[in-house]
Design a protein around this nucleic acid. Structure first.
Lengths: 141, 141
DNA sequence: GTAACTGCAAAATATTTGCATCCTT
DNA sequence: AAGGATGCAAATATTTTGCAGTTAC
């Protein structure tokens, strides 16, 4: 877990149990996590409030970002290196599988530039695509 | 308001005050609406619960759809004709102004096709872009 | 030692459900 | 008249806040 500690230090955060545990949950998970996922996780026995505050701290520092989902539940996922404190560059595509409900961060899929009407200035783009994921598609065959 | 009535009939809904009022709110509004926007609106003096149920009915029937936003608030907007019951085709861009908080449906901005990894099948795409809108940009100058 | 973090309690918000009454067809 | 919609009350769920005790540095 030394990586986790260094990682937190690099972001100017003090090292606490909840931050270590929750951060490593994210690094171990391929998909995004909801608050409930974290709370349910047996290895995380922290107060519900602490989880809220830890997640908010991570978002503020640019470690994780929130994902807009089709059903408007709140999901969090690790940011890429390009995210800076208070300024997210979260320009990858999120994919939600209608079948298994898993949310994927498709890091390798770049968002094509969207041409906005004159006068509109884009700061951040979120693309959420829903459908059937690789896994579920295979199963169906 | 005859249009409103015919519209509701076409979707197999009975004609009630709340449905007429809330539907015409949507047709009069250029942007998307949050539950709170509707509740706050003076012309809508319905119970909070009725608003929830009316919105849910509209979503179920394919009249409106929810918009996922970066801050995970729930927004609703009218669907295009291509939306069918239980099957939304909402492929225009939503723009949220960081300054005035207005949500725009940029109907004329088409979403460029996103190339997904093999095995992923897209059913619906939502693009939410945040930044500064035409109006606020002008003000700042 | 000091500032920051955590847990508990509780407040504030948001959403859902049950049921009696009223409205639409 | 019958089925569905509404309003009210209340149950749930979610998120935020205050504060005392604990921990990191």
């Amino acid at each position: 877990m030394e990586n986790t500690i260094d990682f937190l230090k690099n972001y100017g955060l003090s090292i606490t149990e909840s931050r270590k545990k929750i951060l490593s949950l994210f690094t171990q998970t391929k998909g995004a996590l909801a608050h409930a996922d974290i709370e349910r996780n047996a290895s995380v026995n922290f107060d519900r409030v602490t989880i809220y505050r830890t997640l908010q701290t991570f978002v503020d520092k640019g470690i994780i970002h929130t994902i807009p989902t089709a059903d408007n539940s709140v999901l969090y996922a690790l940011c890429k290196d390009t995210c800076k404190e208070g300024h997210h560059h979260d320009n990858h595509v999120h994919f939600i599988c209608d079948s298994c409900d898993t949310t994927y961060c498709l890091d390798n899929v770049t968002i094509p530039a969207v041409v906005l009407p004159e006068g509109f200035i884009a700061k951040q783009s979120d693309v959420v695509i829903s459908g059937i994921c690789k896994n579920c598609e295979v199963i169906k065959e």
